[in-house]
Each structure stands twice: as structure tokens, then as C-alpha cells.
Amino acid sequence: MSDTLQDKLDTLAGLLVDGSPHALALGMKLVRVSPGEAVIRAPYQAESIGDPETGVMHGGVVTALLDHACGTAAFAGLGGDQAVATLDLRLDYMRPAKPGCDVVAEAKTIKVSGLIAFVSAIAHDGDENDPVATAHAAFMVTRASQAAAERARAEVEQHMANDKAGGASS
């Protein structure tokens, strides 16, 4: 049953954001992931403020959010079993995010070519037609990330084996 990419992504969903200490520390939450697409939310929090005079979230938080959403979309576009590294990330900051509002990044893989995925994304604070920032990025499956993916797979299988052993009701 776990043959489809969506099933695979659903199995990994808990790790895609929470498995990354930096994403976790910034409070990011995975909204949804599907083949080639990812939506991630970054909450407005006091320690993410860039300019205390305006209360606007720092561009760096938006950078990390867009990088993470694009990377997740690239991962989901490359088949969901190879960790990816960012090759380049280009960001346009269109307007400051509204103080007090969470920022949501919606990323989509435009094209996969071999080991490379080309992704574009928008970040908005409620209205996707009025973006805070947009991003274009390229990601690649590197040798280091391939080795990491092997280890991650082993970990997930271990978790699943533990779950099976723990809760045999289903």
C-alpha cells in the first residue's frame, strides 16, 4: 500500500520540518506536502522580529522559511527518498510582512532534471495574491545527502517496526 509517492510523503511528514533543528526552532509547521509541492507556516514570534521599531519579522526568517519550503518541495519532486542541498536561492522581498501575522510559504517544483529540481515559491501573510516575498531556487541531490537519506530511511523503518510492536490493534 505504501507504493505511491503521496503515501511515502505522508509517512515522512512528521520529519520534514520537525527533523530539522533550525526549522523547528523557528516554529515552522508543515501545512501540507504532496508530490512536488510543500506548504509551510512560520509563526509570528517575538524573537523573529527584525526591527523593534516596526515589529516587522526579519527577512532572514522569511529566507529560512522559503528555503525550507522550496527544499521540501524539491524533495517531494525528486521522489521523496533523496535529501537535497540548496544550490542557489533567489529572493524578492516585495513588502514587509504584517506585524502579528504568520507567514506561509507555498513552494512548487517546476521541473526535475536528473538530480536537480527547479522550484519556485511565494510567501504571504494571509492573501496569496499579495505576496510578502517570492523565491526561485535550484536544489540538488548530493553524495552527502544521499548518504544521509540512507540513514533516515533506516531510522523511519526502525520507527515503523517499533510502532508495529507497540500498537498491534490495527
Binding site: 533543528p21 533550525h22 527577512g59 529560512a64 528555503d67 535529501a83 536561492l89 540513514r151 533516515a152
Partner: peptide
């Protein structure tokens, strides 16, 4: 700091953290 890690399995710093640091 550990919280700057993006992928703990490599382990590598988060690309977003490096980008944010360069913006600063």
C-alpha cells in the same frame, strides 16, 4: 549552535540560516 542545523543526518547548517546570516 545546534539550532542552526538544517539536516542533522549530514550534518549541515540550514541554508536559510546561512542566507539570513549573510543578510545581517
Amino acid at each position: 549552535d545546534e539550532w542552526l542545523i538544517g539536516n542533522p543526518l549530514i550534518p549541515a547548517l540550514h541554508g536559510g540560516a546561512i542566507g539570513a546570516f549573510m543578510e545581517i
